[in-house]
Design a protein around this nucleic acid. Structure first.
Ligand SMILES: [Zn+2]
Ligand SMILES: [Zn+2]
Ligand SMILES: [Zn+2]
Ligand SMILES: [Zn+2]
Lengths: 137, 137
DNA sequence: ATAGACCCTAGACCTAGGTCCAGGGTCAAG
DNA sequence: CTTGACCCTGGACCTAGGTCTAGGGTCTAT
C-alpha cells in the first residue's frame, strides 16, 4: 500500500470525501498520486493536514487564509513573525466583529428594557424605534 | 400621482431597486399597486418600512425574522411582550456568537504571545498548535 | 421623432464552504 | 458471477441577501 484512499483519509480526518476533493480543487491540500485505477492515494500526513485546516477554521480562519498559513509553513524564508502577524491580523478582525455584535446587543437590550410587559403592540418601543424616529444607538 | 415609482422609493430608502423587488418576492414588503403600464406604485410609507428593515438588519435580524416582527406589528392580538421576546431571543443568539468569537480570540492571542519574534517558522508555536498535538482551547 | 432615463420580467450570478447526484468504473467476498 | 462498497468526473444544489443581464416596453425632453 503506497497511500491512503480518499475514504480512509476522510474517515480518519472526520470529513466528507467530497470535502477532500473540494480542498484539492481549492488548493488547500496538494494533488495526491493516483493508482492504476485513477484512485487518489494520499500520503499519511494528509490526515494531519486536514485536521490542521479544521482547527484553523475553528479559530476563524477562512480557507484562503489557511492556504497562506500552509504556504508560510513550507516557505524557506518565512519567519515565526510572519505567522504571528497573520494571527494578530485575525485578532483585529475578530475584535471588529465582536464590537459590532456587542453594539447590536446593547441596542436590543436597551429597547427590550423599555418594553412594557403587556401593553398593546401599538405602543411597543422596539417597533417604534425600528419604525423611524431616529437611529437605535 | 397615486404612489411612488420603484426608483423613488429606492432613492429615498437608500437601497437598490432590485432590492425592493427582492423584498417583494420574499414577502418582506407587500405587493404594490400597478399603474396602466404595469409600473409599481408604492404608498408613501413604504420608504419607512424599508428603513425599518434596514435598521433591523443592523441589529442582526434576518429578513425572515424581520418579516415576523412586521407581522406582529399588524397582528391584532400581539402584545408588546411578544416583540420583546423576539428581541431577547436575538440577544441570546448574539451572546452565543460573541462568546464563540471571544474564545477564538483568546486562543489566538495566547498563541501569538508564545510566538518568538524572529525564529524560523519551523519552531512557530502557532503552526505547531494547529498542526496536531491537541486542541487549541 | 428620437435619445436617454425609467420601468418590466425571468433568470443567471456572486460569496463560502461545502454536499449531493448521475452515470460509470473497480474491487473484494461469497 | 454477482453483489455491495468504494472510487471517478462534471455539474447541480444549498444558504442569505442581494446584484446584474438580456430583451423588451414607457416616459419625458428636445
Ligand atoms: Zn486515525
Ligand atoms: Zn510563530
Ligand atoms: Zn426621502
Ligand atoms: Zn414592546
Amino acid at each position: 500500500m503506497v497511500g491512503l484512499t480518499i475514504g480512509k483519509v476522510a474517515e480518519h480526518a472526520g470529513v466528507n470525501v467530497d470535502t477532500l476533493r473540494y480542498y484539492e480543487r481549492q488548493d488547500v491540500i496538494g494533488k495526491p498520486l493516483r493508482n492504476g485505477s485513477n484512485y487518489r492515494l494520499y500520503p499519511e500526513d494528509t490526515i494531519r493536514r486536514v485536521r490542521f485546516v479544521k482547527r484553523a477554521q475553528e479559530l476563524g480562519f477562512s480557507l484562503a487564509e489557511i492556504k497562506e498559513l500552509l504556504e508560510l509553513r513550507v516557505s524557506k524564508n518565512a519567519s515565526c513573525a510572519n505567522v504571528r502577524d497573520q494571527a494578530l491580523a485575525k485578532v483585529d478582525s475578530l475584535n471588529e466583529k465582536i464590537r459590532s455584535l456587542q453594539s447590536m446587543r446593547r441596542a436590543l437590550v436597551k429597547l427590550a428594557n423599555e418594553c412594557s410587559d403587556d401593553g398593546p403592540v401599538g405602543d411597543c418601543p422596539i417597533l417604534d424605534a425600528l419604525d423611524e424616529k431616529g437611529r437605535v444607538r
